[in-house]
C-alpha cells in the first residue's frame, strides 16, 4: 500500500479580478513507503502549492490526499496540523528557521507540536547532520549550508513517514547543494522516510532514479503548455 496517494486533487484561487483560477489538478499520484521521488517543475508551475496541499497547509477544493490511512483533504484544520506535525517533515527552499531560536531550539520547537520535545533526540539529529558543535548557535551565526542542515534536522526530528523538500538546494552553491542533497537522501534512507523532492535543477534531478515531470502530472500546467 502506498504511503502517499493523491486522487483527483484540485486547488484553485481567486484572482484579483474575481475569477477562480485552478492551479493544481492532479488526477493521480502515489509514493511508496521508503521511496525517494523527485518532481521536475519550473517556477510558478504550482509545485509548492502541490506540496502545501500534501502537508495540509492548504486545503484541497476536491479529491483525496491519503497519508497512510488518513485523508489530509478531508480532515479538519486542527487535525491536519496534528498530522503534519507527527507524520511529515518539510524542508523549505529558504529553510524557514526561526531567527530568535538556537539550532537546538529550532529542532525542539518542531518536535513540540508533534510527539513532544526531546532534547536527546534533537541533539542526535543535529549531530547526525554535522552540527553537534553548533547546538547553541543562532541561524544568523551559521553559513547557508549549515542553516539548511538545521532545517533537515528539524524535518527529521519527529521521525516522519514522509519528507517534503521544496527546492532544498535552491539557495545553495554547487558544493553545498551536493552535500545537502546527499544528507537529505541518506538520512531519509536511515530513518525509512519517503522523500518527495521538487526541483528544477538538472544536477539534483539526475541523482534520482524516479523523476516525474510536474507539468505532466498537473493537468493545469499541461493545458497552459498547450
Amino acid at each position: 500500500m502506498p504511503l502517499l496517494t493523491l486522487h483527483s486533487v484540485k486547488k484553485s484561487f481567486l484572482t484579483p479580478t474575481g475569477e477562480r483560477k485552478v492551479i493544481v489538478d492532479i488526477p493521480h499520484f502515489a509514493i511508496e513507503a521508503g521511496e525517494q521521488c523527485a518532481l521536475r517543475g519550473e517556477s510558478g508551475s504550482g509545485k509548492t502549492t502541490f506540496l502545501h496541499l500534501i502537508a495540509g497547509i492548504l486545503s484541497a477544493d476536491e479529491g483525496s490526499i491519503l497519508i497512510g490511512n488518513q485523508d489530509m483533504a478531508k480532515l479538519a484544520e486542527s487535525k491536519r496540523d496534528r498530522l503534519r506535525a507527527e507524520s511529515l517533515g518539510y524542508i523549505f527552499q529558504t529553510f524557514n528557521l526561526l531567527q530568535g531560536y538556537t539550532c537546538l531550539e529550532n529542532v525542539l520547537l518542531g518536535m513540540s507540536f508533534g510527539p513532544g520535545s526531546d532534547k536527546k533526540r534533537a541533539t542526535e539529529v543535529l549531530e547526525r547532520v554535522g552540527l553537534g558543535h553548533r547546538l547553541n548557535h543562532y541561524p544568523r551565526q551559521l553559513s547557508t549550508g549549515q542553516q539548511q542542515r538545521v532545517a533537515v534536522a528539524r524535518a527529521l526530528a519527529n521521525r516522519p513517514k514522509l519528507i517534503l523538500a521544496d527546492e532544498p538546494t535552491g539557495n545553495l552553491d554547487p558544493s553545498n547543494s551536493r552535500e545537502s542533497l546527499t544528507l537529505i537522501r541518506d538520512t531519509c534512507k536511515e530513518t525509512g522516510a519517503s522523500l518527495l523532492l521538487v526541483s528544477h535543477d538538472p544536477h539534483v534531478l539526475s541523482t534520482f532514479q524516479s523523476v516525474q515531470d510536474f507539468s505532466r502530472l498537473n493537468q493545469v500546467v499541461q493545458e497552459t503548455a498547450q
Partner: peptide
C-alpha cells in the same frame, strides 16, 4: 508574520 507561518507549518494550531 513569517515566524507565525513557520510555527503553523511545523504543526502549531491556530489556537496555539
Amino acid at each position: 508574520g513569517r515566524d507565525i507561518a513557520i510555527l503553523r507549518a511545523l504543526g502549531a494550531h491556530r489556537r496555539t
